[in-house]
Amino acid sequence: MRHTARRTRDPTQENPPAQHTALVPYARLPREHHGHTVLTSTVDVLGTAHWLLTERPPQPGGELPPGELPPFDASVVSVHPDGTTSVTALAGVRARRPHLDRLPHGGFLVAASRTHRTTAGEQVQLFDAVGRETSSFSVGDAVEHLLVDGAGRIWFGHFDENPLGIRRWSTTGALVWSSDGADIPGLFDCYALNVTGTTAWACTYTDFPLVEIRGDGHDRRVRVWSNGVDGARAVAVHGERVAFYGGYTGHRDRLALGELTESTVERTDTGLLTLPDGLPPRRRRVVARGARIHVQAEPYTEWGVFDLGA
């Protein structure tokens, strides 16, 4: 039997102020690149932060259909956990509003969230370590999340305009695993996805259970915990502790903590997650890896981190 400390309610304070937890500065885009356009940014499975940059925003043109972009050149600026930086030039990027992640061999993957916003009909592009495109394939429309795991497999979470759920692909474009038939209740939209090692954690609409997907290949084990925190945009897990970040209107900055029981997530605390200076992030990107939730606020030049395991 597990015992946890519980807070007692102060009857004189019906609506106590929420506890604020400040993000810790994690990675910063070097100042010499601040004049470029940030197309997207992420933190990979090894903890390196990456920015996909262009000198100017890509513009439609030529004889392409309305809204499509001609291929353009971009660069990835990487800030490694030891503070060193590297730059990789990518030639012929096609994705509009792209997702980005690093591949284990040092190359990169760029994917469009919508299949109708790419040229040449291929949604996902793989680049080698010197920035040359090596292959491309499509995974389906409405990509909300893209994360590469420690084995180099590619996880996609889809939103409800194309409710494919959660899928895992190889770098050759083969579908390795799908959430179809995985008995995840109410999976119409993958709200939150966290990939660490070869394990994925998710929180999905409509029921918002906490989902663990573990194993390799097609033989993957799925475990589900019921959960009372709705609308979370990121989830972090450390042992039996869980953190959910974000929510619907009025709860965008919510940080809800909980503990795993046999079948449920029991909430233990709720507060707010702020930028290091104490302000709310407003427009932001969020990437969760293991016990960490990384948050990047506009203008998207700095990452902060909340570490559940710290």
Rank of each mutant, 00 (worst) to 15 (best):
S41Q: 11
Q59E: 13
F108Y: 12
V93S: 10
R97S: 10
R31I: 10
R117E: 13
A89T: 09
P65V: 07
P58H: 00
L69Y: 14
T37H: 09
Q125W: 04
V45Q: 08
Y26L: 05
P70W: 10
L103K: 07
S41F: 05
D44H: 00
D73Q: 04
H116T: 05
L39H: 00
T88C: 15
S86N: 05
F108R: 05
Q59F: 12
A27F: 02
Y26G: 06
T115Q: 12
P25H: 14
S113I: 04
L52F: 07
H116M: 01
V110S: 06
A74Y: 08
R28T: 15
P104W: 06
P65L: 03
L53V: 11
V45G: 15
R31Q: 14
T84A: 15
G35P: 01
P58E: 04
T115E: 13
V77R: 00
P60S: 06
P65M: 06
L126Y: 08
P25D: 10
A49P: 11
E122S: 02
V79W: 07
T37A: 13
L109R: 01
V93H: 02
E32P: 15
P57W: 03
T48Q: 02
R31N: 10
P70Y: 02
T48Y: 01
V87T: 09
H116G: 07
G121L: 12
V87M: 10
T118R: 00
F108H: 07
L100W: 01
A95N: 06
R56M: 01
P98V: 03
A111K: 04
P65D: 02
L46V: 00
A27T: 00
T88A: 15
V43T: 05
V38K: 04
A95L: 09
R96F: 09
L109H: 03
L39G: 02
G92L: 11
H99P: 08
L53H: 05
L64S: 11
L29Y: 03
D101M: 13
T119M: 03
A89D: 06
V79K: 02
P70F: 12
T84I: 14
E55N: 08
L69W: 08
G67M: 13
Q125V: 01
R94V: 14
F127L: 07
V45M: 00
A120M: 08
T119H: 00
V77E: 03
H34T: 09
H36C: 09
L53T: 05
L126N: 04
V24T: 15
T118V: 05
T84L: 13
